[in-house]
Amino acid sequence: NQASVVANQLIPIQTALTLVMMRSEVVTPVGIPAEDIPRLVSMQVNRAVPLGTTLMPDMVKGYA
């Protein structure tokens, strides 16, 4: 099973992502693949992302 990127904390809207905000976890449905974590650093979320939420491509500006 492929690991996805999951929020390690509440990430407020417009926040630039850092490594400490994300973790990898095998979840359903599958979100952004964990191997993309380095690419996500400094990208902004376009909505508030609660703790434990799987990051989906449409939540990160410039990802999809």
Score class of each variant (00 low, 15 high):
Q2H: 14
A3S: 08
A3P: 15
A3V: 07
A3G: 10
A3N: 07
S4P: 01
S4C: 05
S4A: 03
S4M: 01
S4E: 01
V5M: 02
V5Y: 02
V5N: 01
V6F: 02
V6P: 01
V6I: 12
V6M: 04
V6R: 01
V6N: 01
V6G: 02
A7G: 01
A7P: 01
A7H: 01
Q9F: 08
Q9G: 05
Q9T: 12
L10C: 09
L10K: 09
L10S: 13
I11C: 03
P12R: 09
P12T: 07
P12Q: 09
P12S: 08
I13N: 14
I13F: 14
I13L: 12
I13T: 13
Q14E: 15
Q14C: 08
Q14L: 14
Q14K: 14
T15V: 09
T15A: 11
A16C: 07
A16K: 12
A16D: 09
L17E: 01
L17P: 01
L17A: 01
T18E: 10
T18Y: 04
L19F: 12
L19P: 09
L19M: 12
L19C: 07
V20F: 14
M21V: 03
M21S: 04
M21F: 04
M22Q: 00
M22H: 02
M22P: 00
M22T: 01
R23P: 02
S24N: 06
S24R: 13
S24V: 10
E25W: 06
E25A: 15
V26P: 07
V26T: 09
V26F: 07
V27C: 06
T28F: 15
T28Q: 10
T28E: 14
P29E: 06
P29A: 04
P29Q: 05
V30H: 13
V30T: 12
V30Y: 12
G31Q: 01
G31E: 01
G31V: 00
G31K: 02
I32M: 02
I32E: 00
I32N: 01
A34D: 06
A34V: 08
A34P: 05
E35Y: 14
E35G: 15
E35N: 13
D36E: 13
D36C: 09
D36I: 07
D36F: 14
I37M: 13
I37K: 06
P38T: 11
R39L: 10
R39M: 14
R39W: 10
L40W: 03
L40S: 00
L40Y: 02
V41M: 06
V41S: 03
S42E: 10
S42K: 09
S42G: 15
S42C: 08
M43A: 07
M43K: 11
Q44V: 15
Q44T: 14
Q44H: 11
Q44I: 10
Q44C: 07
Q44M: 14
V45H: 02
N46Y: 09
N46S: 13
N46A: 09
N46L: 13
N46P: 01
R47E: 09
R47G: 05
R47M: 12
A48T: 14
V49L: 10
V49T: 05
V49K: 01
L51G: 12
L51C: 09
G52F: 04
G52C: 04
T53P: 00
T53I: 07
T53E: 09
T54S: 04
L55P: 01
L55K: 01
L55G: 00
M56K: 08
M56Q: 14
M56R: 09
M56T: 12
P57V: 06
D58L: 07
D58W: 14
M59N: 06
M59L: 05
M59T: 05
V60E: 00
V60P: 00
V60Y: 00
V60F: 06
V60Q: 00
K61Q: 13
K61T: 15
K61P: 14
G62R: 06
Y63G: 03
Y63L: 06
Y63C: 05
A64F: 12
A64E: 15
